[in-house]
């Protein structure tokens, strides 16, 4: 464990808590992409299948359980409890355009052709593009609530911090996982446009609006 990975995990946990708070406090999931949240739940489900069989540490097990529970909890809030506030008209990104190529790629490019490894690879590739429906939805509505922009900033920061973690582990532990690094870089690059808007607007106290 290193400071980059720890702060990355905390940023990830913070993002998930911010989203749950937003939905619970405003009793609305307006502006939140249910498709992205479905894909995040799929990411955690396919990545943490070894939760029972492969004990790493109490921290690892606890965080995995929190991530799985919170991602399904978010789906429950969005599609059941506050379903009436789900903005399906603006959440129109075609998930199959992401899931199918990612599934194909995980069969072609992986470290080991075994079920667990292919599912892990699928979850890594899927996570790198899972935010696209959310970013697409913001581009369609042209704005995002401030709390939702904080959620996205924390979520984008988590994988950026993981990149620093991989640099650290490469130099100090000789650890290197090309699949995770490449996918993590793609994932972080997808946030650049949002990061620019967030830093130039939200940090000045303005609402996050996209230039018309």
């Amino acid at each position: 464990m290193n400071v980059f990975r720890l702060t990355g995990d905390i940023a990830h946990l913070l993002a998930i808590i911010l989203l749950l708070m937003k939905i619970w406090k405003t009793r609305s999931c307006a502006g939140v992409s249910g498709k992205s949240q479905m894909m995040f739940a799929l990411v955690f489900t396919t990545r943490y299948l070894d939760l029972i069989t492969n004990f790493i540490s109490l921290y690892n097990t606890t965080m995995k359980m929190i991530f799985i529970a919170s991602s399904y909890g978010t789906l429950y809030l969005m599609f059941l409890k506050f379903r009436a506030t789900y903005d399906s008209n603006h959440d129109t990104f075609r998930m199959e355009f992401l899931v199918v190529p990612v599934a194909g790629l995980s069969f072609l490019v992986n470290h080991d052709f075994s079920p667990l490894e292919i599912l892990w690879t699928f979850s890594i590739y899927l996570e790198s593009v899972a935010i696209l429906p959310q970013l697409f939805m913001i581009s369609k509505t042209g704005e995002a609530e401030t709390i939702t922009s904080h959620y996205l900033f924390a979520l984008g920061s988590y994988r950026a911090l993981y990149i620093l973690n991989w640099v650290y582990r490469f130099y100090f532990e000789g650890f290197f996982d090309l699949i995770a690094v490449v996918a993590g870089c793609v994932q972080t690059v997808l946030y650049c446009d949002f990061f620019y808007l967030y830093i130039t607007k939200v940090w000045k106290g303005k609402k996050l609006t996209l230039p018309a």
């Binding site: 990975r5 995990d9 990830h12 070894d50 492969n54 790493i56 540490s57 690892n60 965080m63 995995k64 991530f67 470290h111 892990w120 993981y162 973690n165 532990e173 000789g174 650890f175 290197f176 996982d177 090309l178 995770a180």
Partner: peptide, 10 residues
């Protein structure tokens, strides 16, 4: 080359 470590990352 990826050091065969357990998948210890989240």
């Amino acid at each position: 080359k990826k050091k065969k470590g357990k998948k210890d990352e989240l």
